[in-house]
Amino acid sequence: MVEKFILLAQKYPLSLVQHILLILPVCIGLLRWKFLSQELKIITVFFLLYFSKETIALYFVLNRINSLGLENIFSCIQAIVLALMYDKVILSKSKRKSIYIGLAIVLIINIITFKKAEISNIGNTVVRVYMIYIALNFFVWLLEQLKIRNVILYGMFWVSVGVLLYAAGTLFMYLFSEYIFTPKASDELFDIYWGITQIVSIIFCLTTSLGVWVSKYDSENYL
């Protein structure tokens, strides 16, 4: 199993880096726990779940167990956690209502289109569209409210930057996942798109880490 792991790490070094980096926001979050608002505590827990999911998926891969069903389940968890997180920060009733209506639609579509042994392209695509929607919703709220003195030092801004880039960077790949994540796809193309997925995931990790890091300024950053 160790040999297999080393072979995998040599073949997909970005995956290894991404897997290790997932723990970075968790570590920073634990260091900054007393400064963290509820929404940032939720995202810290989310990255702990993300890391756990990647570890289980790695275990499945090393033991030749299909892990694609786990990806589909985690996609739903992503949508639920992000909805809970934005519910804590966006105080507009109508926007919060739209977040929960959107979440209900996303979950229904995911349940209907759930696939155990392959990537559910519709379900995953809908989750990405939903992530883009709630990140944009947050940005609109941020501009409407004008409560933040310096957005660069605002934790949730960086988390939303990560959510938006991650969702925008993976949307088309999940939309056309039946062409990429199938045995028919050439290894070369799979590696390219898998690499891009890992890069946007790393960006998501880094921006979230930055958001959690700057959270100590949040209390003084209100107008």
Binding site: L143, L146, I148, R149, N150, V151, F157, L223
Partner: peptide, 8 residues
């Protein structure tokens, strides 16, 4: 980021 900073 730019617009929010300007507004703030």
């Amino acid at each position: 980021a730019y617009y929010q900073q300007k507004q703030a």
